[in-house]
Design a protein around this nucleic acid. Structure first.
Lengths: 359, 359
DNA sequence: CTGTTAGCGCTTTCAA
DNA sequence: TTGAAAGCGCTAACAG
């Protein structure tokens, strides 16, 4: 009743398990054609499926790639996951998924679980945090990762290195030029906007958010504008919504007062927050871009049909996942390929309706 | 350098591996407190992480749940995946992800891969197809699943049973009342709409799509309306977009002709298609609901901020994933709980702006 | 309660 | 080229 084993196949074919193994799985040595055929027949007459656990045990490698995300239902992570999945398929590996909600403690657990499963590599997506409350967690995570690498594991992190992680072999970082791109966005926005700016950001210490804020401020400065006010809130839709509510008040107040001069351009540090903010403004009876302009970051695919179309920075999310995964995989076998960066992440400022000045 | 083993821990603690195993992993028997402490200390002084592969081999079970989706970046699947992930965590298992693009052949491969890894259970999301081209694939998939179940695997399918699968122990189906709900949607829509209806559907043979079409037609009939025309296209955004382009032509023609009487209400069999169709109409200069009404199905979370708000049928996607996963898990240990359905999937018609008749 | 002894299914030297 | 044997790390009978 139980799945049949290599030994059974071997017996049926009248050969040793060793030979059967050599035939059925890729071995350096090639058994005789006749024998090979017999084994293969026996194998599929028994419906033989190799036991990956046993193989893994014997070879001490599992063909598994661990992926850590905050939330797989978040389109940002889902897009990255797709890329990871594709790259995994290229390497003929399977992906193990862990959802952590973003806490380093859970991430550490996920790494340990992956290590236990002897995952060949681990991809960590999702912003790092350097808040003091996360300090211990980060340290533990770093330690766990360290150990994993020391035992031969490969890890790739999207965005920033894990805070406190020792640089070492097997540890890759796929850098995302959040700061530069946010700067560009600010520059381009400033060129067509003479009102004020306000930034809707995630909690201080969230590295991705901080980078984008910093970059945006720099861009503003380069454009000869003053620093924008920063509103800190949750790094998700509802955070954006709350901030939007606040801003709506303010905008309406400004409109009714005689001061009504410069309109506000809101930069939310990611698309999902931007959508939340936009929803709040709309709920308060404001229109975009008539009453306020708004821009996001990421260019989430599912959100592209949103109207007014959201100005944002396109990030090649799927590629990011792919690159990260490839970085942990076997070295490409091409010759000149090893000093070519396997993938430099670049983004693109994409201005759309949501930040157009009224005609 | 390599991860340390149970044997090493045991040696350091001065006990037998068996004892070490008993204290470190949940065994029925409890070793003495003093000994237990020694072992535990040894374990974390060595940074011991149990080798799940070895455990799996020995216990012949892996703590893995395989999840099969068409595309993890599709918000529909991402939402289900989140539910699966949560339920997996409840069962202290990890999820293995396979993305198939929807073909039964790939699905079969995924099942085989899961079987090779000795996944404890498999959850298959994504519409079944009964198109003739998929017939062979379905048969093979069914056979693979069969074998998997016979070897003690648990499988849950979302929506419909795999075409041709023999009903048997360990095979669960989480039914989704697509047809009924589509019927209700049609009824409610018909109550407030006196124009015509047209259905934008996926390819014939896609069971989910077919159910929704059938249900909608029935609802129309019950409301004393004639059958709606069905436009077949791809079961995704671009399918919706194409259909939308066609319809836009038609609508504009009707508007310019004197006939301009009944407006069109478009029912797209899923939200993503609906959004695509809406985008096409908009691109052609039409407005919703002024020039046409439109409704979808699923109530995808990310799409709720879309304007005009999309009328749709809310499906508890996350619960669906959860239920499916739970169905494959250990029986709940409560007493009366076993004749209580672990989860009946129900949906809810949700009418919003996109189908409002102009005031 | 603890230790000993076999495996789980496969790969891989090492001989033949 | 093939087979025999040892072992990957852990669990589970069975003894002690």
């Amino acid at each position: 009743m139980a799945a049949s084993t290599l030994t059974e196949v071997a017996r049926l074919a009248g050969v040793s398990p060793a030979t059967a193994s050599r035939v059925l799985n890729g071995s350096a040595r090639k058994p005789g054609k006749d024998i090979a055929e017999r084994v293969r027949q026996a194998a599929d007459s028994l419906g033989y499926i190799p036991n990956a656990q046993a193989q893994g045990l014997a070879k001490s490698s599992s063909g598994l790639i661990g992926l850590i995300v905050h939330d797989i239902a978040d389109p940002y992570f889902a897009a990255i996951a797709r890329g990871v999945q594709e790259a995994a398929r290229e390497q003929r590996k399977m992906v193990l998924l862990a959802t952590t909600g973003g806490g380093p403690a859970e991430e550490k657990e996920a790494v340990a679980a992956f290590a236990a499963r002897r995952a060949d590599s681990i991809v960590i997506a999702g912003s790092r945090s350097c808040r003091s409350e996360d300090q211990d967690g980060n340290a533990e995570l770093a330690a766990e990762l360290d150990r994993y690498c020391r035992n031969g594991g490969q890890v790739a992190v999207v965005g920033h290195p894990v805070v406190g992680a020792t640089v070492q072999e097997g540890y890759h970082v796929v850098r995302v030029p959040n700061q530069e791109l946010a700067g560009q966005l600010a520059t381009e926005l400033a060129a067509g906007w003479d009102g004020g700016f306000v930034i809707v950001a995630g909690p201080e210490g969230l590295l991705t958010s901080d980078d984008r804020v910093r970059g945006f401020q720099e861009g503003l400065e380069r454009a000869g504008r003053g620093q924008a006010e920063v509103i800190r809130t949750a790094f998700n839709r509802s955070g954006g919504y709350e901030a939007g509510l606040q801003l709506a008040e303010r905008i309406k107040a400004a409109q009714s007062s005689a001061t009504a001069g410069g309109k506000l351009c809101i930069f939310a540090v990611n698309d999902v927050m931007a959508i939340g903010a936009a929803a709040a403004l709309r709920a308060e009876g404001l229109r975009i871009p008539r009453d306020a302009a708004i821009a996001g970051f990421d260019d989430i695919e599912t959100l592209r049909d949103f109207r007014p179309a959201l100005s944002t920075v396109r990030l090649p999310l799927e590629d990011i996942g792919r690159f990260a995964t490839r970085a942990t995989g076997p070295q490409p076998n091409g010759e000149d390929t090893d000093h070519v960066h396997p993938g430099d992440v670049t983004g693109e400022v994409t201005l759309r309706r949501s930040t157009e000045v009224a005609a």
